[in-house]
Design a protein around this nucleic acid. Structure first.
Lengths: 235, 235
DNA sequence: CGTATGGTTGATACCCGTCAACCGGTGTGG
DNA sequence: CCACACCGGTTGACGGGTATCAACCATACG
């Protein structure tokens, strides 16, 4: 069960604002938008936001900070990772038309979430074209992301890993990647379950990239040194 | 360039109605809904609906009949299939927020399309909760489909092919598959480019399934004999 | 009838999954 | 403080699944 935070945090000072629903909103509009937020939740590493078969209850969640993974369990108990979600992403979009969730969603780090109901969002969007556009944008972006993953998954191990690394959220806005230090929240097995690789293969590819000078990696601390080389590998 | 059809075809007698936007609409509502259709197009096998970098112009297309594939071209000219679309599917959902298309969309058979503008659909949805729900449903369904593909692509060749076959649109409503005759519109290479397999591997798996009695296949005429066995393989 | 296209089948090479050992870091309890 | 277990990650050996290349066949088509 998620824990409700005490002090309300504003969208205005949210680091993920430019990747989130109130993107490009002015100060006043942003304050109005904030009233759509139902509650804010704080989850710790290992906490579930919801599990497979939990009722959806029309809820959407925006990630204010932290990282999540969504997964399904196969018949033999294997986790199949369907995605990683980062600050600014919306959780629950694929379930807005379902009575019950088909995935489980788990926090990979300390996280803060903003809760919405889809009904209120739609209602507000009817009077506000900009918000409606943002909603569409989030949906369309999600579809594009899934399709990008699809293309990636049809490729070779090194191309998959390179593409995965390049799709990690940039630590700073602007997208400059070279020299950037990223803290991976997931382990090698999760990356493998996401990309359709064995964890040992992920490890091998990463060390190969390191030997080639594309990146440095110590445990989960990643520094991308040569993003262009990674792009060349990803194709 | 798509060719405009002369006689307007009604949604009422459309075979794909129950998979399309006017799903569950009564006769009167359906007639009202039809006024949202801009034009109807007829495309032949090999015709492009649009290509990468074509302007989106806010258009969506519902497939009345026929099959499409969407693909991207890699740097070395290889086609990467991002999806197959069947009657009742919406084309262009992933582009509603983009200025230009990122895929090319090609008819795999004789097809008929119904054109919408996203703006008019949204406008109509504001006064009609049922239509708004249908729009959401289509988006959510699309996201779920992409995620299902993601999971599939992380698996072995026979599991991929089995999953692909089971995801083919049922010829008749009701979803009974055993004994059903399906006409594949795509060739082995397309299936392979979609699933991340070589065309020869697709061929081998299909003949193995046939040897095992799961299906019969002559060129592109497919009969699923034992859907349960396919499900068991797909896992 | 010759050609092109799509599909099947075989031989071979290689990528990657599996299994196992090992290693460093962390936590725990004596 | 140290012994020990445990978890995550790395590395090696090996086998199997799949890509690649090629030959061959059936069908469609000019």
């Amino acid at each position: 069960m998620p824990h409700t935070t005490g002090p309300p945090a504003s969208c205005l000072d949210c680091g993920a604002r430019q990747r989130c629903l109130p993107r490009d909103l002015g100060e006043r509009d942003c304050t109005l938008f904030e009233r759509l937020v139902g509650q804010r939740y704080q989850l710790s590493r290992g906490d579930h936001l919801y599990r497979t078969n939990d009722p959806v209850r029309d809820r959407l969640y925006a990630i204010r900070s932290g990282q999540f993974k969504t997964y399904q369990l196969s018949l033999d108990g294997q986790q199949r990772i369907t995605g990683f979600q980062y600050a600014g992403d919306l959780l629950g979009l694929e379930a807005i038309d379902l009575p019950r969730h088909r995935h489980s969603t788990l926090a990979l780090s300390e996280t803060v979430l903003c809760e919405f109901t889809h009904a209120r969002l739609c209602e507000a969007a009817q009077g506000d074209g900009a918000l409606a556009a943002r909603l569409r944008e989030m949906l369309s972006r999600q579809l594009l992301r899934e399709q990008a993953i699809n293309v990636l998954l049809a490729r070779r191990a090194d191309q998959k890993v390179a593409g995965f690394l390049l799709a990690l959220p940039a630590g700073r806005p602007g997208g400059r990647r070279n020299g950037e230090v990223l803290q991976l929240a997931m382990n090698r097995a999760d990356i493998g379950a996401y990309l359709g690789l064995a964890d040992t293969t992920v490890s091998r590819v990463l060390t190969r990239f390191q030997r080639l000078g594309y990146l440095t990696l110590h445990r989960r601390q990643l520094t991308i040194v040569d993003a262009a080389a990674l792009r060349a590998v990803a194709g």
